[in-house]
């Protein structure tokens, strides 16, 4: 365990409850009438959150009685912690993150997911002989978030321990572009399009194909779920469907919020992420079996206690209020 993990394991529940005591004032009423919702993103404004922006701009949330304020995130955005401490009503997270945080005392429930298949994976140059993740040869080097759950999973499941070298990823595609043999961790929503924008031909190898497939852009609310949950989920579904049909308005807003994204990258990402959003079950669906499978994967990696299950971390659509 790294220091930071140990730190958060030991202290996070204590600190979060302190924070909750300090910050649990009633949310201030939003500018427009309706149930105020602070929606905390787990990354900077990018197309992977396009539907939420469409929900605000297209009035989907307002019509359903919500006044939604989107709070952008950044590296390590503690969205579930913000939810737990009452500073957000909706947190965007990922399937694995939700399970791990729940095991550490954060009371949150997954209710909807945009990415049916994880946007995470590996990126190689188009001319690379590596066609699938299983093809990565012994002696290769991969720039990856060292110690992260994906890296832990890959090395354990692919038998790479002692064979493949993990290099700390610096969050830049520069070294990748300079080295045709380079393999790098990537999100379909980011690095491949940046690399293409710089003139490189790349191949994206999705993590879902080798069995690492947590839901992405997972909408989480407090557990037990608030009364407005079903209405919010329905509005979110409608908003995302509208975004998939016509991303122009939301993408313009994203470009305004995040001027570093060029128009080319925006449209590249919007197209590239499409298949990952829909998946097999369709946009927004959640299946308890997948949470259980993720929980058992995390258990086997030592990231959750042995025998952990995941189904309780989600709430089926339309479940009756207790």
């Amino acid at each position: 365990m790294t220091f930071s993990e140990r730190f958060s394991t030991m202290w996070a529940p204590v600190l979060f409850s302190l924070a909750a005591v300090g910050c649990s004032g009633a949310p201030a009423p939003g500018p427009s009438a309706g149930q105020p919702i602070r929606l905390a993103l787990n990354w900077l404004p990018e197309p992977e959150f396009g539907g939420f922006y469409e929900g605000v701009l297209g009035g989907h949330y307002e019509r359903a009685g919500f006044a939604v304020e989107i709070i952008p995130g950044g590296p390590g955005a503690p969205t579930l912690e913000l939810l737990a401490s009452g500073q957000a009503e909706v947190a965007i997270s990922a399937g694995d993150d939700l399970l791990v945080k729940r095991s550490r005392g954060v009371q949150a429930l997954g209710v909807w997911a945009a990415f049916q298949n994880t946007p995470m994976g590996l990126m190689v140059h188009a001319e690379s002989p590596v066609l699938r993740i299983e093809d990565v040869p012994a002696g290769a080097e991969i720039a990856i978030e060292v110690g992260g759950p994906f890296q832990t999973f890959l090395w354990a499941r692919q038998g790479w321990e002692g064979k493949v070298k993990a290099l700390p990823a610096a969050g830049s595609v520069g070294p990748f572009l300079a080295d045709p043999a380079r393999i790098q961790q990537a999100y379909i929503t980011s690095e491949p399009c940046v690399a293409r924008g710089k003139g490189a031909e790349v191949r994206f190898l999705g993590a879902g194909e080798v069995g690492w497939n947590p839901y992405g852009t997972l909408v989480a609310v407090a557990d037990p779920a608030p009364a407005w949950t079903d209405d919010f989920v329905a509005a979110t579904q409608a908003a995302w469907e509208a975004y998939m049909a016509d991303p122009a308005r939301a993408n313009a807003e994203i470009a305004r919020k995040n001027p570093e994204l060029s128009a080319e990258i925006l449209s590249c990402v919007t197209e590239a992420q499409r298949p990952f959003l829909v998946g097999e079950d369709g946009l927004g669906a959640l299946r308890p079996e997948r949470f259980d499978a993720m929980a058992s994967t995390l258990s086997s990696l030592g990231l959750l206690p042995p025998g952990a299950t995941g189904a309780a971390a989600m709430r089926p659509r339309g479940a009756a209020q207790p």
Binding site: L44, P72, G74, L177, N258, I265
Partner: peptide, 23 residues
């Protein structure tokens, strides 16, 4: 590590520009 780009700052610019390979 703790910025979401609002307001923009040098640390955020470093992070953002590295992600988009704008060296």
């Amino acid at each position: 590590v703790g910025s979401n780009g609002e307001p923009p700052s040098l640390g955020y610019l470093v992070l953002r520009s590295a992600r988009s390979a704008d060296t």
